[in-house]
Design a protein around this nucleic acid. Structure first.
Lengths: 100, 100
DNA sequence: CAGGTATTTGGCAAAATAGCCAAACAGACA
DNA sequence: TGTCTGTTTGGCTATTTTGCCAAATACCTG
């Protein structure tokens, strides 16, 4: 397969991968309301802080979130508002599945 | 965490997982043009037909595609047109990343 | 029914991902 | 500087995912 096409497919898949975990979905939902520090997200997710930090790193690496250090806290926020529209679509899919 | 919330997060993550692989991204792109038989998709993807069949099974299980057997071929098609809007959004994300 | 094509399934090995702990780091502030 | 808080990184094991082959299945056609 053409290397260029392959790269494009991998780039797209990387973004979906960054969303393909329940904790990361929760993180996106939280960030939809505005920025959050790692500590807030850790509490919500209910996992070890190192685990949450690694999730955030995956999401940052995929371009889904931005981070900003202020004092000794790091705040994350959604980089792409359109991500939220994904979620509406997913909701539609799920509703549709329920009505079978 | 509330079991209900957990189920919702997992349901959403399942859909993203079904998109989180380069071959499956390619399959969605192909199906955007209309239904395809497994043999067509196998040729495009360039993997073993059993591999492609398993990818399709993941996607079907997540509710992304529908299958229909006609004669001795199985045709797959996108179940949710809004999935394609996902892709537009992803494209925006990628463009944005490029311009850094 | 026999043989052919198209697809799915079982099984296994390789690769990728997840999650915890402990250790390292960074910044604030006495 | 020493210590405290918040975060990231390294390292390890456990789990999940991927992809091939071989075998099973489904349907058509002679």
């Amino acid at each position: 397969m053409d290397i260029k096409i392959k790269n494009r497919l991998e780039a797209r898949a990387k973004i979906f991968k960054a969303l393909a975990h329940p904790s990361r979905v929760l993180i996106v939902e939280e960030l939809a309301d505005g920025e959050r520090c790692v500590c807030d997200l850790t509490e919500k997710v209910g996992a070890d802080i190192s685990t949450v930090s690694k999730h955030l790193s995956v999401m940052k690496n995929a371009g889904l979130v931005l981070d900003e250090k202020r004092a000794n806290q790091v705040f994350y926020r959604l980089r792409m508002p359109c991500i939220l529209k994904f979620f509406d679509c997913v909701e539609t899919v799920l509703e549709d599945l329920k009505n079978e």
